[in-house]
Amino acid sequence: MQFYGFLLTAVLAAVLSSVSLALFSPFVTLRRISYLGEALSHIAFAGIAFALLLGWNLHWTTLVFVVLVSLAISWLAKRHKLAEANAITIFLSVSMALGIVLISLRNGYNFDLASYLFGNVLLVSQAELWQLGGLVTLNLAFIAGLYKELFYLSYNAEMAQFYRLPANLVNRLFMILLAANIVINLRAAGIILVSAQLILPASTAFNLVRRLDHAVLCSALLAIFAAVAGFALSWWLDLPTGASIVLLEFVLYLASLSWRGLAPK
């Protein structure tokens, strides 16, 4: 019985993790900021190292660290007219270096780096499962509540601001929630693989549907399918779960390319 409870927790973790990232996926893809998702997940590594070194709460420390760094990137890019992509690359590399140094300072500490790099749904606790559930609810509320604003922000942020939409406010909320999604998903999805789950569902969805609201729904459904099927495959074939889910999402993406090729123009 306990075994089935453990299995159910793991499956639910895989589904909630994939769905939370998939809900954000269409906006990340349309705004072409998937590189930011990649960077924030790596920057989170330094946040994790800080939390471990100081003995602070891992999630909150990492979340605050990632949000502060993402704001610093925007500030540096604006203040010093540095291309944002360059600023992100600098922070990504420096954060990884900082994380490695900080972890090395904790001599003798047994840190399971691999589980954070690649994710492991089997290690997700009940408390973390509730966090993932809360995150999915928050994402749904955010997207449903500010759909119009997110739609035009994704179209063109400058013109959205011109047409008196609070583009800066919505963008800041978006960035904070994106950071929260990445940090809370690190345990389940992993630093390396989290960004794949931010890009693939929407890339597939946009090959199948033509409206943004349909793409959000389609991304979520694809993510549920990939999470359940990927988990089952990994269980039966004894493969890493996160990697199996990502590979399955990629197969779905390839299939959607063929569908787009066949679909009427």
Binding site: L30, G145, L146, Y147, K148, E149, F151, Y152, S154, Y155, M159, A160, Y163, R164, L165, P166, F206, V209, R210, R211, L212, A215
Partner: peptide, 22 residues
């Protein structure tokens, strides 16, 4: 971008609506 011509024109009215209103 998955917008229709009508969506684009509605952008011109978006600022008249309260935050979150459809």
């Amino acid at each position: 971008f998955p917008a229709s011509a009508l969506d684009l024109v509605l952008m011109g009215l978006a600022g008249d609506l309260p935050l979150g209103a459809r």
